[in-house]
Write a protein that binds this DNA or RNA. Structure first.
Lengths: 156, 156
DNA sequence: GCATATTAAGTTGCACACAATTAAATTGTA
DNA sequence: TACAATTTAATTGTGTGCAACTTAATATGC
């Protein structure tokens, strides 16, 4: 007689997987779903996120962008260089603190915002949920994300 | 007078971002949180997912594994080669249909399952939510994921 | 029976993610 | 004011993801 209340099909190795895997596979689907909608702008999904952050506030440091997106310089530096090559952003050393690099928008980068407005409209339909569902799901995920990040510190 | 009911802070370009970004950044956090727990097994998170699929059923084709994990051969082929090099899985052509490659477990791969049982226990705590919360969040995400995947077909 | 279409896996090229390390600038402190 | 500790980006190396393409094998239609 099993005392766990779980049968073979519900073993921990299958069951627990599902939440993490649901997150993982949904995130992959998000990226794939954005791709055709971002193609007109010539942006990848992470590049789009950086542009959104910059449309909200110009002249942020690499570190500030990284904190907002939970990405480190190993990811951001090459990504920002590609956005610079594409003529969308500017990168310049802060003259006061020369460790920092300030990321700004070019006229093209600023102008892209208007065209980008169509993306969330299209994606809203693709998600296929109500605004309220989206909001509650979002807040649940953020709680969980912060729990996970906290747990990483503890393991170290 | 605005008719949208949204102020500047709630513009579509910020607002809609949050659900997709919550999913994206939580998925990154999931991978980072698993990493130290999987290090003892010498597995990455996607490799762990493949092993879980194989622990549930041996001798699956690359395609079958790919359908379960929503990954294509471009991702799986090199990943499976690494697992083969690590001595955890076997790869052999199906003699009946030689287009297919059957993925099996080695004795080491099979034996790893027992050690892997500790991973979901540790991760369950890291997520910091109840089993019921996890279940409902999981099903909401899967609905959304399938909506997204369907929408990709429509765009093409 | 045979040309055509389809399918499965592999390959190529590009762009993330992230750990670990490095280099340069700034801060803290004795 | 030296000088060690910290901070910021950049760099290096590995492993995904995925689109686009190739190759080989099987299925299909006529």
């Amino acid at each position: 007689m099993e005392k766990t209340g779980l049968n073979d099909q519900e073993s921990l190795l299958s069951l627990e997987n599902f939440l993490c895997f649901a997150i993982y596979s949904t995130a992959n689907a998000v990226t794939r779903a954005y791709q055709p909608r971002l193609a007109a702008l010539g942006l990848t999904y992470p590049q789009y996120l950086v542009m959104v952050v910059l449309w909200e506030e110009e002249n942020q440091t690499v570190k500030a962008i990284g904190e907002k997106l939970s990405l480190d310089s190993g990811t951001l530096t090459p990504l920002l260089k590609r956005l610079e090559t594409a003529g969308l952003i500017t990168r310049r050393r802060d003259t006061v603190d020369e460790r920092q690099v300030l990321i700004g928008l070019t006229a093209d980068g600023r102008a892209m915002r208007a065209r980008a407005e169509a993306v969330p409209v299209a994606m809203g339909k693709a998600f296929g949920c109500t605004m309220d569902e989206a909001k509650s799901l979002r807040s649940e995920l953020i709680v969980m994300r912060d729990n996970l990040i906290e747990s990483i510190e503890e393991v170290k």
